[in-house]
């Protein structure tokens, strides 16, 4: 099997580029703590409404500028429906579903994950810009999927 000299160079450059991508991703994910959301906690999807803290979805202040947001994503909405946090607040989102699969995305941020029944999904974001952030479901969940959204106000 003979490789043309240029093809050899091209494949070395290509493989090198891919290795560079992998290296940067590993450093960013594991050394800088920016790995994708991979919470391993589980919950019974048929008992979400009676399992604390999801029986009472909402924001809890856990630190000076830090909040835990326990939320449920259901067909077709989110609970709590409206949230408000001060500018600079760090919010830890913990979301689960009592019915089908949903998505949870805040456009303009890296908060974007799947919500699977039986699992709790978590992600953290610090809101450094004021505004009314849209939270939307980005996984098809049924006839009303397109209205499934809420907002979080930062001021």
């Amino acid at each position: 099997m003979h490789l043309h000299r240029y093809e050899k160079i091209w494949l070395i450059l290509g493989a090198g580029g891919l290795a560079l991508f992998i290296l940067l991703l590993c450093i960013n994910a594991f050394a800088m703590g920016m790995a994708p959301p991979s919470n391993m906690t589980m919950i019974d999807p048929t008992k979400v409404t009676e399992t604390p803290p999801f029986d009472n979805p909402g924001l809890t202040k856990v630190g000076d500028q830090e909040y835990d947001a326990y939320m449920t994503a259901f067909a077709f909405g989110f609970a709590p429906n409206k949230m408000e946090v001060p500018l600079g607040a760090k919010v830890n989102f913990h979301v689960t579903s009592p019915d089908v699969i949903h998505g949870f995305q805040i456009p303009g941020t890296n908060v974007n994950f799947m919500v699977l029944p039986g699992h709790i999904s978590s992600a953290t974001y610090t809101f450094d810009e004021p505004g009314e952030y849209l939270i939307l479901c980005n996984e098809y969940c049924g006839a009303g999927h397109q209205v499934m959204a809420t907002t979080i106000i930062v001021k």
């Binding site: 003979h2 490789l3 043309h4 000299r5 240029y6 093809e7 160079i9 091209w10 450059l13 290509g14 580029g17």
Partner: peptide, 17 residues
Amino acid sequence: PHQENLKGTFAAVIIVG
């Protein structure tokens, strides 16, 4: 084939890269 003039090919794949 490995002796053929493939300068253009090389330039093209570099653009892709």
